[in-house]
Structures are given as C-alpha cells and as structure tokens.
C-alpha cells in the first residue's frame, strides 16, 4: 500500500487529479450545476477542439521540440475545407480528409525545417505561423464564411446517446467529443505500443544517442510535426462544427494556452516526458477553472490571471523541487 502510494506520488498526474477533485468540490459547493452530466458533456464537447490539438502538441514536446504554428495551420485547414465544401461539396469524411491533408503538408514543412535544416523549432514555427496565416488572409481577404452545408451542421448535432430532462430539453454525448477521444486513443497507441512512439521518447531524452543507436530520427521528427499538422487540420474542422461559421481570426492566439495545458500535464519542454492522460488532465484543469469561474459568477476578466497563476504555481513547484534535488545530490559533475 505504502509503496503504491509512493509510486503514485512520483506522477504529475496524481497531483492533477487531486487538484481537479478539490476544485470540483469547491465549485460544486457553490453551484451544484457544475457536477451535472449535462455540464460535463457540454465541457467535453467545447474542449474537443483544444483536446485534439493537445495530443499533437504533446508529441512535439516529448520529441524535444515545440510548435507555435499549429493554430495557424488549423485556421488554414479550416478555411480551405470551408471553401472546398462550398465550391465542390462532398461529405463529412471528405471534409476531414481535406483538412487532414492540408494540415499534414503544412506540418511536414515544419518538420523539414526542424530536422533537415536544424532550425530551432521555436524560430521555425514562429516563421511558418506568420507565413501560413499571412498568406491565408492575404489570399482570402479574411472574409468570414457563414453558409456551410446543411449536412455539415447536421453532423455536429449527432449525439451518441441522448438524455431527456424533466423540462423537456435534451442533452447527450456529442460525436465531436468522440473524435477527441479517438485521437487520444490513437495517441496512447502510438506512444506506448509502436516503435515510433518509443523513438519519440528516446529522441526527446537524448537526440545524439538516438542517432547513434540507429533510431530513425528523421522519420520520427518529421512524423511529430506532420501529425501535429494533421491533428490541427482535424481540429480546424471541429472548430467549424462547433461554431458553424469560419472566422479566420478565431483560433490564432490560442496556441500558448494549449501548450500551457500540456505542460501542466507533466510534459517537459526539454523533451522525453509526458503522457496522453496528463495532457488530458492539464486541459481539464484549465477547463474547469474557466467553467468554474462562470458558474461562480467571477467576472471573465479574471480568467487569464488565473491561468497565469496556475501555470506559474505548478511549473514553479516542479522546477524548484528539481533544483533542490540537484543541489542535495551534488550532481555538479556533468556528463561529457
């Protein structure tokens, strides 16, 4: 028992679960509607957009990189899909396919810049972010798109099961949430049960060693950025499904929030660490902070402030603990 507890204490996820439980009780005490199934389903649906991208961000971070451009990629994919649906038509599958394709290509370009040309990921993706977004708005004039096909809005309404409430309204688990969950499952499978996934951890742990033992670093790095792009593309469609309009400025600017959520979930910016479950919990934490504020009638202007506090507190505690640990064991002797 004690051993099991001590083992649990090593995982960031454990602390997150405790914090989330504590916050949930606090919010629910003030406003019981927080802990209702309806509210939960609603939250899960609206955070699917962030959730899908967080898995891509997670893989990029584990590999030791960073991607700032994914919000721009999502925007580009969303916009092109909207144009595709209006001009050519198709169905929901073709919409996702086009988005995935566009996203993968744009992500692959990031992968190329990072892997082949050794451009620091943060610089490379800041550059491509500007390039992608700037070109999109230049080419399209930044016009909003409202007249999406009927089948598109119909798809967004599909629910896996529906519950009727007493006052004759209904709610249920949205198919959009299921896309997020499917992406999480894919993420877990890739990271835990494929060679590729273990390579991503290995590269993030020690890139030079990864090259030496014969891991295909190029393929893995190109994969994480392409996969990030692919998920950003899918997230773009999800965003369109959720709001049923395509506004080119609605996504850009959210990228740092998602990175923050994934880092909260235990992923390290130096690479080699992180889990799908952790990324999920990080996102849940940010979601309930925001939702809880609404339910507790705290003015929304406080949100960013709280997010900042949460990031600094959680990262500060882990970093400082790490520093003390280093000092105590006197590992001043640095490996050559």
């Amino acid at each position: 028992m004690e051993i099991a507890l001590r083992k649990l204490a090593r995982y960031t996820e454990t602390y997150l679960v405790i914090i989330i439980a504590f916050l949930s009780i606090l919010i629910a005490a003030k406003n019981p509607s927080f802990l209702t199934l309806e509210n939960m389903f609603d939250l899960l649906k609206s955070y699917s957009f962030f959730g899908v991208m967080s898995i891509g961000v997670l893989m990029v971070l584990i590999s030791g990189g960073i991607d700032i451009s994914f919000a721009a990629v999502a925007t580009v994919a969303e916009y092109l899909v909207a144009l595709f649906m209006m001009r050519i038509g198709g169905n929901i599958f073709s919409a996702f396919a086009v988005a995935a394709l566009v996203g993968s290509v744009l992500g692959y370009i990031n992968g190329l810049l990072v892997n082949r040309f050794r451009i620091p990921p943060i610089i490379a993706t800041i550059a491509t972010m500007n390039a992608y977004y700037g070109l999109l708005i230049f080419a399209t004039g930044g016009k909003w798109i409202y007249d999406l096909p009927i089948w598109f809005s119909d798809f967004a309404e599909i629910q896996l099961f529906t519950i009727h409430t007493a006052n004759d309204s209904t709610y249920g688990l949205s198919i959009i949430t299921m896309i997020w969950f499917a992406v999480m499952v894919a993420g877990i499978l890739i990271l835990r049960f494929t060679m590729l996934g273990r390579s991503i951890y290995a590269i993030g742990g020690d890139r030079k060693s990864a090259l030496r033992v014969g891991l295909n670093v190029r393929r893995a790095e190109e994969f994480v950025y392409s996969f990030m792009g692919l998920l950003a593309g899918i997230a773009g469609v999800i965003q369109a499904l959720l709001v049923q309009t395509v506004a080119p400025n609605s996504i850009v600017g959210k990228e740092l929030n998602i990175i923050a959520a994934v880092v909260l979930g235990g992923a390290s910016l130096t690479g080699g660490k992180g889990s799908v479950f952790g990324a999920f919990l990080g996102l849940v934490l940010l979601a309930i902070v925001k939702n809880g504020m609404t339910l507790m009638a705290i003015p929304p202007v406080w949100y960013e402030f709280f997010v900042g506090c949460v990031i600094l507190l959680s990262v500060g505690i882990t970093s400082y603990k790490g520093k003390l640990e280093k000092r105590r064991t006197a590992t001043i002797l640095v490996k050559a």
Partner: peptide, 27 residues
C-alpha cells in the same frame, strides 16, 4: 531562483499580466 524554463516563466507572467490588465481596466 525557481529554475523555471524562461519560455514557461514568461508565458505564465504574460498570462498573469494580461489578466491583471483586463482586471484593472475592465477591458
């Protein structure tokens, strides 16, 4: 002192300050 990587530390304080700015000006 806390040893937070600069990108995270300044991301956190960015959010904090943005929030603070919204709070004091109410937008």
């Amino acid at each position: 002192i806390l040893d937070i990587p600069p990108i995270l530390a300044t991301l956190g304080s960015m959010k904090l300050l943005q929030g603070l700015a919204f709070i004091v000006t109410k937008g």
